[in-house]
Simulated scan of single mutants.
Amino acid sequence: MNNASWLIPDADPPEWSLPADIRARDALGGRDCGWVNQMRPFIRHFSSPGHRVLDPFCGFGTTLLGAHLEGRHGLGFEIDPDRAALARERLQRHGLHADIRVGSINGLDAGRANLCLTNVPYFGCGWTGATVDGQLYLQPTYADFLSGIRGVFHAVRQTLEDGGFCIAMAQNLVVAGRRFPLAWDVARILDSLFVAHEERVLCYPAAALPANPGSTKTNRSHEYALVYQKRRETVDLKGTAEVLEALRLSGFSYELFGSFQQWQEQGQPIAARLPADADLLLPLEQDQLNALLRWLSARGFQLTLWGEPIAPSLPLETWQSHHYVRADCRGRDGSLIRLDLCCEPKSTSARG
């Protein structure tokens, strides 16, 4: 793989394509099956021989087949038992024993993986297969669908080794004439769990036909490979300390704890690692909490609750049930100040 921001995958040779008889037995006719040659460059570039490659939406086992061809070990999760059986059959025809587990990764033990590489499912595809709890194709609303996506990638984060990459391939969609920014919404979810790198644009051959004047429709022959990594963020320590002092001078009460508090006391990295955020324990006072959110918002902080943007006002019960609110301020010089705002006992805090 070179450093071009776009990639045109080679079409799969017949021996690696999804067999026609397997395609015919699928609820969607296999139309959401990716290419082996779409996955292989990413497997080669972001993992090493012998590594474990995870696909939490494994479908027909395309990523797992690519992993085998590149000398890696594949692990797949597929929530639909019929598709899992078809994937196993496909790989068995290549003489491969497939480690495919039926169910969602956020409900099963996955062990450890070095790379996550997957195509995310599409919203509104008209699934006609079995009704299974957690089947994202059957989610009634886009918000429910994205919540399910987030749950899966949260489990992926627990599975990945430190330094491992998470690469999700996604396309913005048009359903009933309405555009759904799926790729960008998946990126927003991944932003809350991993450190973002530059994306690749994957381009596929498609006929370009004349368009009527004013037509906005395209042949939708591209998707995004969103490249993320499980590692600690780098934050602006001086800027963070200045914000914390400004909070005190503005009359906000908080208790600093966790790695930033230790760094301030010791003046050096803890266990050779710099803090990735500052953890604040706040008093259980609704008006003061909302005033703090307004103060931060007015100073350019983006407020999120488990990756979802929020307004500078939040019910105390919601805050407590989600453990913390994240406040990020990104400067024009690329700097980052990150505060995790907790309002629960430190002993049960989700951060530290």
Rank of each mutant, 00 (worst) to 15 (best):
H97K: 14
N119K: 14
I149M: 14
A155F: 09
R101C: 09
G134C: 07
L136M: 06
F145Y: 05
L69V: 01
G59K: 07
P140K: 01
R157D: 07
L75W: 05
Q92K: 08
H73G: 12
A155G: 10
S48K: 15
F153P: 00
L75N: 09
F60S: 15
C125H: 12
G151T: 05
R88M: 14
G76N: 08
T118W: 07
D109G: 09
N114E: 15
L136P: 02
Y122R: 07
F60G: 12
L65T: 09
F57W: 11
R88V: 15
L54N: 00
G50Y: 04
A98W: 07
D99Q: 04
N114Y: 07
H94G: 05
T118G: 01
G59H: 10
T62H: 00
S104L: 15
F77M: 04
D80E: 13
A110K: 01
F57K: 08
Q139I: 10
R112K: 15
T63E: 10
R83L: 12
G124E: 09
H154S: 15
Y142W: 13
V102K: 08
R157A: 14
T141S: 13
L54R: 00
H94W: 02
G50T: 06
C116S: 12
F153S: 01
G124A: 10
C58G: 01
F123V: 03
H94P: 04
D133S: 14
I100D: 07
P121I: 03
I100R: 01
G59V: 02
P140H: 02
H94R: 00
H154A: 15
E89W: 07
H68D: 11
E89Y: 06
C125E: 14
D55G: 03
L136G: 06
R101K: 03
A113D: 00
E70S: 02
